[in-house]
């Protein structure tokens, strides 16, 4: 990025701080490829890059009061994109550390009786009823993040819930579903 572009972005951000929506819209669209390029250094898959790029945009939105037009915009933007990419990477590593790959989970068995547990989980009616029984916030989190497979940022924008609240809702929903399906299994046995 050359310094002229950086200066222009700085002016757009200064206008956005004053409430100019057109300037802000233009700025966010223009900086997106630059953000993606930084995020791509830390994240490989396209979905992941887009997810983190959206998180960077949300962060820029939250901390836009910290930009000082007397200082280079590119440095401010680069620091935020880099920092949030690293944060996402750390979250990913932490999350991976808590998950275990179990090949048994993907196996089915010749004996129909042995597949009973798996069949119960695959029963879409049971699952739909279990999801319907969840509180509205948790149900919305499951629908947006797991059924529609939206990213956290998209789900946040669509539901009006914060990213943090969505994560908590999803976590609780999964626990609740496990409990409901566990009880269901118990009844089927």
């Amino acid at each position: 990025m050359n310094s002229d572009v950086g200066d222009e972005w700085g002016m757009l951000m200064a206008a956005a701080q004053g409430g100019n929506r057109q300037a802000y819209d233009r700025l966010l669209r223009e900086i997106l490829p630059y953000i993606r390029a930084i995020v791509r250094k830390h994240h490989a898959t396209a979905d992941r890059v887009e997810d983190v790029a959206q998180d960077v945009l949300l962060t820029i939105h939250r901390v836009r009061n910290t930009y000082d037009p007397a200082r280079p915009f590119s440095k401010w933007l680069g620091a935020i994109a880099h920092r949030r990419s690293i944060d996402a990477l750390r979250r990913r590593v932490r999350s991976d550390a808590n998950e275990t790959f179990s090949p048994i989970a993907y196996e089915t068995f010749a004996d129909p009786e042995a597949n009973k547990d798996i069949s119960a989980h695959e029963d879409s009616t049971v699952l739909a009823e279990a999801i319907a029984a969840l509180p509205p916030g948790q149900r919305q989190a499951v629908e947006l993040l797991r059924l529609k497979e939206l990213s956290l940022a998209e789900a946040s924008a669509e539901s009006g819930q914060s990213v943090g609240a969505l994560k908590v809702s999803l976590h609780r929903a999964i626990r609740a579903l496990q409990a409901i399906l566990g009880r269901q299994d118990g009844r089927n046995d």
């Binding site: 409430g19 100019n20 802000y24 966010l28 669209r29 997106l32 945009l57 998209e154 669509e158």
Partner: peptide, 17 residues
């Protein structure tokens, strides 16, 4: 995805000084 385009439109649309 609602895609990043939608997110940008939303952020810019709700912008406050």
């Amino acid at each position: 995805m609602i895609r990043t385009d939608g997110l940008i439109a939303e952020l810019a649309g709700d912008l406050e000084p």
